[in-house]
Amino acid sequence: MRTLIANIKRKKLVQLISEGKRSDGRDLMEYRPIVIERGIIEKAEGSARVKLGETEVAVGVKIEVERPFEDTPDQGILTVNAELVPLASPTFEPGPPDENAIELARVVDRGIRSAEAIDLKELCIIPGEKVFTVFVDIYVLNHDGNLIDASAMCALAALLDTKMFGYEVKGGEVVIKEDERHPLPIKNHPVSITFAKLGDELVVDPSLEEEQLMDVRLTMTVEDSGKICAIQKGGSGFLTLEEIDKALSVVVDKAEEIRKLVVG
């Protein structure tokens, strides 16, 4: 609900943005400072923490042996889940993932899956019988806007940090060799760029305040060769075709800039 105060704030924010300025002093196409740490959880096969301004996200990667899906017997499985844990925001409540958490996980998942970032064929152990499942668990620790980009960056950083176990097959059983570790086969590096529309302008990396007052959100994910691999519009506003085009014209360069930070 947009209260009276929110309407006044929004008017001011839209005015400021129409002059090419933002309330925190950033340019319209400028991200907040990004800090990426890898290997923060020893017990996880891979992990990372990303700070995007005051937004903070942790991702842990776990790998387990499971039965493959019937339609992809020779491929490993990727599962992305997001938890909006109550310590991250006064508006988050305990309980099963709500639609926001599910959308967040699915948008991050779509980028990784469409870009074929993980070589799932390499994760097959015995076709039709046993494959590795990669669990990517997104844990939002502090919500200050743009959870999608922070989570996508963090997921990629954690996947790049992931060390798989070596294994051997003995009589149809998989024996894990704990002392033998090798990196997860990563082939592509999808990076998501999120825009918020405020008035007639688009800004990247919306802060929480901007998110609360925006008309609509648009996320585009770009893979290594500059192809778009996922898109998601969010929020109950609309975009014109011109606005979509405008986002498209900056998104590839912006993604390259962020990719350098994440991949290093």
Binding site: R113, S114, E223, K227, I228, I231, K233, L239, I244, L248
Partner: peptide, 18 residues
């Protein structure tokens, strides 16, 4: 002329997407 849903999965270069 207002787009109210926009999603994509798979891969397209920007020209193909347009």
């Amino acid at each position: 002329n207002a787009v109210t849903l926009l999603q994509m999965d798979g891969m397209l270069d920007p020209k193909e997407f347009r």
